[in-house]
């Protein structure tokens, strides 16, 4: 019950946050030099002021800013993200086309980074001070210190170009005609490199956190009590230490969701992954106002969903809640 009320409360807060984000971004993006009409005219290779004036009128850019803001907010309140004049289609459709790719990428990176991070963190903490601990810690540090885009480029060079094991870019084999399982397998192959490069960076973060947290918890009194009771090492680790140690890790993971989605911009660029991160970057350059605002709203919504997800995980992990049920 309490879970549902909490989630409902968070959803209401989230809606307010999203609206505020819409307004802030509206002003930010309109403060940028140039507008979509100028970009389109510029790309046409020839344009006269009449042409640009026509475009501005068509896009509604000849209206005062507050009128544009008001109509945008009204749209957002009715869950309408507006129309992309550049792409000639509703922003909602545009994002719907691209969102699955980003969700697939970020969710798999999230799962990879969290599960590997926790696993390695636990392993390192159990071998604290030994050589294998140092090796794991050092590897994690290296991943953490490597620029994401650089790791991505190197991964393409090694695994795609040199070894030819995995496709280096794209979402699926274009025009392959695959369907069903064959298609899923195809997409999976394309997913491995981008999801790993994005995930390994965050894995390093979670691993260090897990390790530190495990060590901290293992010094606590209740663990000492359990040891005194004669419980075996693995049992203590699993039942007592891990559960408590995971709490800060899960909290951190929720907070990092925004960074994960931001990092997708780089990953999607290097791997030509057709997601909304790249859509954002491209529509920013094109000053495609509605699209970029829409992408920001959707990615902020994704952050909120990730946060709620981690909240749920938190409650599952939290031993105090677990004890009640």
């Amino acid at each position: 019950m309490s879970l549902i009320t909490t989630i409902l409360g968070r959803l209401v807060k989230a809606a307010i946050t999203l609206l505020a984000i819409a307004v802030l971004n509206f002003f930010l993006i309109h403060a940028a030099p140039g507008d979509p009409a100028a970009v389109l005219a510029g790309e046409a290779g020839a344009a006269d002021p009449l042409f640009i004036a026509q475009l501005r009128e068509r896009f509604g850019l000849d209206q005062p800013l507050y009128v544009q803001l008001w109509s945008y907010v009204k749209n957002v309140l009715t869950l309408d993200l507006g129309y992309s004049f550049r792409q000639g289609m509703p922003v909602y459709d545009l994002i719907a086309q691209r969102l699955p790719a980003t969700l697939l990428l970020t969710l798999s990176s999230f799962v990879i980074s969290l599960s590997l991070g926790i696993a390695f963190g636990v392993a390192a903490a159990a071998r604290v001070g030994k050589a294998s601990d140092s090796v794991l810690t050092t590897i994690a540090l290296l991943f953490y210190a490597t620029p994401l885009y650089w790791a991505a480029l190197m991964a393409v060079l090694v695994f795609s170009v040199q070894l030819g094991w995995l496709p280096g870019f794209g979402y699926e084999t274009v025009g392959s005609g695959y369907s069903g399982l064959a298609r899923a397998w195809d997409i999976l192959q394309h997913l491995i490199l981008p999801a790993l490069t994005l995930g390994l960076f965050f894995m390093a973060v979670y691993m260090r956190m897990t390790r530190a947290s495990m060590l901290e918890v293992s010094q606590m009194d209740f663990v000492k009590t359990a040891r005194a009771k004669g419980l075996s090492g693995p049992v203590i680790r699993r039942r007592h230490i891990l559960r408590n140690a995971l709490l800060p890790v899960v909290t951190l993971a929720g907070l990092q969701a925004g960074q994960l989605i931001g990092g997708a911009v780089l990953t999607e660029t290097v791997f030509a992954w057709p997601g909304i991160g790249r859509l954002m970057f491209e529509s920013l350059e094109a000053r495609d106002y509605n699209t970029i605002l829409g992408v920001f709203l959707v990615s902020a919504a994704m952050v909120i969903v990730f946060n709620i997800l981690t909240d749920i995980v938190y409650r599952i992990v939290d031993p105090r809640i677990g004890a009640k049920s």
Binding site: A14, T17, L18, A20, I21, N25, L28, I29, A31, A32, P33, L255, G258, Q259, I261, G262, G263, V265, L266, G277, M280, F281, L284, E285, I292, F296, S299, A300, V303, I304
Partner: peptide, 24 residues
Amino acid sequence: MRFTEFFQTIPNFALAIVLVAILE
């Protein structure tokens, strides 16, 4: 905290890109 959460809800790298693009 609302203010902080607000900034944490916007994907931060994306926000950085927008800010730099706007300010040049």
